[in-house]
């Protein structure tokens, strides 16, 4: 066991055996799992160079686990790509390298926008908009172009945000990676149109590509229940612990390293907090919580009526902001 997973609270219940009974019908998690595996396999059968975008969060973890199942007993037949902004939580890096790379032995690609890095682009100096654009959106495009990936799995769910509700499972992007909501293909049954205009690997210009969303029909609760059922380790930041935070505009920001400049008179306070979603630490708000274990997190979620994206500052830049980002090629 790697250090990352041994420090991670995992499910206490015996997870999988229940689905082995000769039940006549499948529960909704089984149905969602089967649908996702179908999508993963269909992608591998249809594209030359698939990749899984891996954000280190719980959705990525579930998606990666589904990929391991889809091709079992074989290995996952594609690499996973982490677009590293340089501003992720420290514990995310520990988990990524300890669990995904070392314990699972998955081929892990890490890409950083070197030019942005040289220019010192960051969320604090440049603000969330520029940082997200340069270090995430542009970096993702760079990585996809560099490796000429023609299909990229993403862990987005339709319940996360309004514009995602209309997203297809196989979503075509033009050579500049742009999404056109008016040019979406109808998706009928589970018969996916996987055709795109490609260019030969040696051609200077890129062809179209697809984003594939195997978790489209999952909710946040489904993801957590599946993490529990399959006993998957997740980044410990999801669980409440005393952590040093500062409060800004009503959002609790973790002081994860000394790159976070403190305002005059501002002092980090120890608060028992956890994260519902993980991103760049200065852009991701913590919530105060007592939920130290997976089961407590799930109970908290069941009791709450808040959506998880509220912790992410980038979505509040204006109505339809996620849609604008997607049109520009943000995942």
């Amino acid at each position: 066991m790697s250090p990352a997973s041994s420090t991670t609270p995992t499910a206490s219940a015996a997870p999988h055996s229940a689905s082995h009974s000769a039940a006549e019908r499948l529960g909704h998690l089984d149905l969602l799992e089967a649908e996702a595996i179908h999508i993963l396999r269909e992608t591998v059968a249809s594209y030359e160079r698939p990749v899984m975008l891996y954000s280190v969060g719980k959705d990525s973890t579930v998606m990666l686990h589904l990929a391991r199942k889809a091709f079992h007993p074989g290995r996952v037949p594609f690499p996973v790509l982490h677009v590293d902004t340089g501003w992720k939580f420290k514990e995310m890096y520990t988990y990524r390298d300890g669990y995904v790379r070392d314990e699972l032995g998955i081929q892990l690609l890490v890409h950083r926008n070197e030019e942005g890095f040289r220019q010192g682009v960051g969320p604090i100096s440049h603000g969330s908009r520029v940082h997200t654009d340069v270090m995430k959106t542009v970096a993702l495009r760079q990585a996809l172009d560099l490796h000429r990936f023609d299909a990229a799995f993403g862990g987005a769910r339709r319940d996360e945000e309004k514009s995602r509700a209309k997203e297809r499972i196989f979503s075509v992007r033009d050579p500049q990676h742009r999404w056109d909501p008016r040019m979406q293909r109808p998706e009928l049954w589970n018969t996916y149109n996987t055709r795109i205009k490609t260019t030969p690997p040696t051609a200077p210009e890129r062809g179209e590509s697809v984003r594939v969303f195997p978790l489209s029909n999952w909710t946040e609760l489904d993801v957590w229940l599946y993490v529990r059922r399959e006993a998957l380790p997740v980044v410990p930041l999801y669980f409440a612990k005393e952590r040093p935070v500062v409060e800004r505009h009503g959002t609790l920001i973790l002081v994860d390293d000394d790159r976070l400049p403190l305002n005059p008179g501002e002092r980090p306070q120890m608060k028992k907090v956890r994260f519902r979603t993980l991103g760049c630490y200065p852009l991701t708000g913590a919530v105060e919580s007592e939920a130290e274990t997976l089961d407590e997190v799930i109970l908290e979620l069941i009791a709450s009526r808040f959506s998880e994206r509220q912790g992410r500052i980038i979505d509040h830049d204006g109505a339809g902001s996620m849609e604008d980002k997607k049109r520009e090629g943000y995942f």
Partner: peptide
């Protein structure tokens, strides 16, 4: 709550299939 995309909000019509989940 359901008219997700900007264009349709401006036109006041739903232009595409949107998927929602609830329980």
């Amino acid at each position: 709550l359901t008219d997700g995309l900007k264009a349709e909000r401006e036109q006041g019509i739903t232009i595409d299939v949107a998927y929602r989940t609830f329980a």
